[in-house]
């Protein structure tokens, strides 16, 4: 293993008595021994062990099948029908998908979602990375600050959106009052088609960066100090250490965070619903908003399900990319 690669994590690594240099080799040897021991077990014992494992997993598996997998299949089926409010429906094949491909509003909402994702993800990840790096170096009251930065994440999105709406208000919002006090003109953050998405993305980044920050902080803490110390001894500056040592070692965690945040961004709805109701002129009308309107305003459940399935595919593609990239890193 190269020194610049992340350390393999095994319970043995955490043993305070294990000498740092010998630990990985020792851990690997123990793992091989354990595997060999397992291989020698008689078949009934292995089966019993597998059944016990399955029993532990079963409740979660059942919940997953009932509340995730089943409904997804149900939605896939519904997207092939013209299900009506009365409960009647006819099978219409791929008609909903054909209509979707020719629906300008679908493409418009997909475009809005893509632009929002392109704005939200870098904002959130940079904010999370910055605060994680600061927290990593902070020794005094680290727990307090970690809690403080994480607080927006556990705040209700509706509450956060309402507060940010007040902050952005044209007439007497906090931002515009500050701009006014500085002698600058008013900015219509939510009423301007060009500014509305960056404004919502900034509010959402404030709300959501805490989760990624914690993951990145854990990633930073897993980087062996001796690696950065070696770079310091070699004369690397703080920026060089971050750019050439920390960042490459953090890459798998960073990829994970990027993909999670992108998936989150593709499902944006609440913030837009509360702050702008999709306006102005549909400038913040996301794909999920389109889905919501199709189902619950136009009562077009089959069509809404088709939108949901497309969204599911987009998220699936992102998840596969994540799997592939992280898998490659681990290899």
């Amino acid at each position: 293993m190269s020194k610049l690669e992340p350390r393999e994590t095994s319970p043995d690594d955490a043993l305070p008595t294990a000498p740092p240099a010998a630990a990985p080799a020792e851990g690997a040897a123990r793992a091989v021994a354990a595997a060999a021991a397992a291989g020698r077990r008689p078949a009934p014992a292995r089966r019993r062990e597998a059944l016990v494992g399955l029993a532990f997993v079963a409740p979660m598996l059942a919940l997953f099948l009932v509340f995730r997998f089943g409904p997804t299949l149900g939605a896939a089926f519904l997207s092939l029908t013209d299900y009506r409010l009365s409960g009647e429906w006819d099978f219409i094949g791929a008609a909903n998908y054909t209509r979707l491909l020719n629906d300008d509003l679908f493409w418009e909402s997909l475009g809005v979602t893509a632009v929002y994702t392109a704005l939200y993800v870098p904002m959130t990840v940079l904010l999370a990375l910055g605060t994680a790096a600061l927290l990593y170096r902070t020794l005094w009251l680290r727990g307090f600050f970690r809690g403080l930065f994480f607080l927006p994440y556990v705040t209700s999105i509706v509450l956060a959106a309402v507060i940010w709406k007040w902050i952005y208000e044209v007439e007497d919002g906090l931002l515009n009052s500050t701009l006014g006090a500085l002698g600058l003109g008013e900015i219509d953050f939510l009423g301007n088609e060009s500014l509305v998405l960056p404004s919502i993305a900034a509010a959402s980044a404030w709300k959501g960066f805490g989760y990624s920050m914690l993951i990145l902080l854990a990633g930073l803490q897993s980087i062996p100090r001796e690696v950065t110390e070696a770079a310091t001894i070699d004369g690397a500056s703080a920026w060089q250490r971050f750019r050439w040592v920390t960042l490459p070692l953090l890459r798998p965690v960073l990829f994970f965070v990027l993909v999670i945040e992108a998936i989150q961004a593709f499902q944006v709805f609440d913030a837009m619903y509360v702050m702008t109701a999709g306006g102005p002129v549909r400038a913040s009308y996301s794909l999920v908003y389109f889905l919501y309107d199709s189902g619950f305003k136009f009562f077009d459940f089959g069509y809404a399900s088709a939108v949901g399935l497309v969204l599911f595919l987009v998220v699936l593609v992102f998840s596969l990319i994540q799997r592939r990239l992280i898998g490659r890193e681990e290899d």
Binding site: G70, P71, G74, A75, L78, Y83, W89, Y292, F301, G308
Partner: peptide, 16 residues
């Protein structure tokens, strides 16, 4: 059997 499941998904997807 199918339709209530599908509606459940719609509801979950939109958080409505």
């Amino acid at each position: 059997a199918t339709v209530p499941l599908a509606l459940l998904t719609l509801t979950a997807l939109t958080a409505a």
